[in-house]
C-alpha cells in the first residue's frame, strides 16, 4: 500500500516536471522570433545575414534607432508621423468597434428579434472573406469617394473588419451574465440603462477588454489593406512604413527590425495594461452555483 502511494506520488512529480519542461520549450520557440528581431535591430546587416547564423552578437549598437529618428535624408524615415497615424487609426477604430460590438453583442445576447440567427451568421460570414480579396474593390470604392490616403478611410475599413469579431466575442460574455442580475438591479431602483452600466457591463468587462485588445492589434498590425489604401505620410501606418527600408535591390534588415521593435512596444504595453481586466470567472457566485 505504502509503496503504491509513493510510486504514484513520484510519478505525479515527474509528470509535473516534464510538463513544466515542455512548456518552457514551447515558450522559447514562441518567443524566439521576437527576441531575434530585437537582437537584429542592434547589430549590423553583415552579422544578421551571416551563415551559419551568429547567435551571440559581437557588437551591439543603437545606430538603427538613432538613424530612424534622425529625419528623412539622414537615413531616417518619418516614423513619428507613421506612429501618429497608426495610433489614431487603431485607437479610433477600436473604440468604434467596441461601442458597436457592445451594443450588438448585448442585443444578440438579450433580445429576441426576427432573423436573429441569420443576422448573426451573416456577420460571421463577412469574416470568412480574406482581407486581401477586399483590397481591390475597396480601392476602387475609396478612390471614387475620396477616402484614399485618409485616416477616416482606414478607420472605416478596420472598424468594418473588427465589428463581427467584437460582436461575437462580447455576445458570448453577455450571455454568461445571468438575466436575473439586471432584473434585480432594476428592482433595486436602477433604470434599464443604469442596470447595464452598474451590473452587466462590469461583469462582461473581461470580454470587452479582450475584444478591445484583439481589435487594436488587428488594426495596429494590418498590412495588406493599408498598403493599398494609404499613399503618403498623411495616413501611412507603421506596418506600411516597414517598406521604406526596402530599396530596389537591398533590404535594410537592421532598420526594419528596429521599426518592428518600435511597433511591438505599444502593443505590449497595451496588452499589459488591459490584462488585469481579463480576470475571468467574475460571474461565479451570482447564483447558487
Amino acid at each position: 500500500m505504502m509503496d503504491a502511494n509513493r510510486k504514484s506520488r513520484i510519478r505525479k512529480r515527474l509528470t509535473d516536471w516534464a510538463l513544466t519542461g515542455l512548456l518552457f520549450l514551447a515558450m522559447c520557440i514562441i518567443c524566439l522570433p521576437g527576441l531575434w528581431i530585437v537582437l537584429n535591430s542592434l547589430r549590423p546587416t553583415v552579422e544578421i545575414m551571416a551563415k551559419p547564423p551568429v547567435w551571440i552578437p559581437r557588437e551591439l549598437s543603437f545606430d538603427a534607432y538613432v538613424a530612424m529618428f534622425s529625419g528623412v535624408g539622414q537615413g531616417g524615415i518619418p516614423v513619428v508621423q507613421y506612429f501618429r497615424n497608426s495610433m489614431i487609426i487603431a485607437v479610433t477604430s477600436t473604440i468604434i468597434s467596441l461601442a458597436i460590438g457592445m451594443s450588438g453583442g448585448y442585443a444578440f445576447a438579450r433580445y429576441r428579434f426576427r432573423f436573429k440567427g441569420g443576422w448573426f451568421l451573416g456577420l460571421m460570414l463577412t469574416r470568412a472573406v480574406p482581407g486581401i480579396a477586399l483590397s481591390l474593390p475597396l480601392f476602387f470604392l475609396y478612390a471614387r469617394v475620396g477616402l484614399i490616403d485618409t485616416h477616416a478611410g482606414m478607420i472605416l475599413a478596420y472598424t468594418a473588419l473588427n465589428i463581427p469579431f467584437t460582436i461575437w466575442l462580447i455576445d458570448g460574455f453577455f450571455r454568461q451574465v445571468p438575466k436575473d442580475l439586471a432584473e434585480a438591479a432594476q428592482i433595486d431602483g436602477c433604470t434599464r440603462w443604469q442596470a447595464f452600466w452598474q451590473v452587466e457591463f462590469p461583469l462582461a468587462r473581461p470580454g470587452i477588454a479582450s475584444a478591445g485588445i484583439f481589435a487594436f492589434l488587428i488594426s495596429w498590425n494590418e498590412f495588406a489593406l493599408a498598403s493599398q489604401l494609404t499613399r503618403s505620410t498623411d495616413s501611412k501606418t507603421l506596418p506600411v512604413g516597414l517598406l521604406d527600408y526596402t530599396a530596389e535591390f537591398t533590404i535594410d534588415w537592421r532598420g526594419m527590425c528596429a521599426l518592428a521593435v518600435v511597433m511591438i512596444i505599444p502593443a505590449l504595453l497595451l496588452t499589459y495594461a488591459v490584462q488585469k481586466h481579463l480576470v475571468s470567472g467574475l460571474t461565479s457566485g451570482a447564483i447558487k452555483g
Binding site: L181, E183, I187, R192, P202, T283, A286
Partner: peptide
C-alpha cells in the same frame, strides 16, 4: 410603472447577487 417606481423588493430563486 417600471420596477424602480413600484417600491417593491424581490428575492429571486437564483438569489441574483451581484458577483462583483
Amino acid at each position: 410603472l417600471p420596477p424602480r417606481d413600484r417600491n417593491i423588493s424581490m428575492v429571486f430563486q437564483s438569489y441574483a447577487l451581484y458577483p462583483h
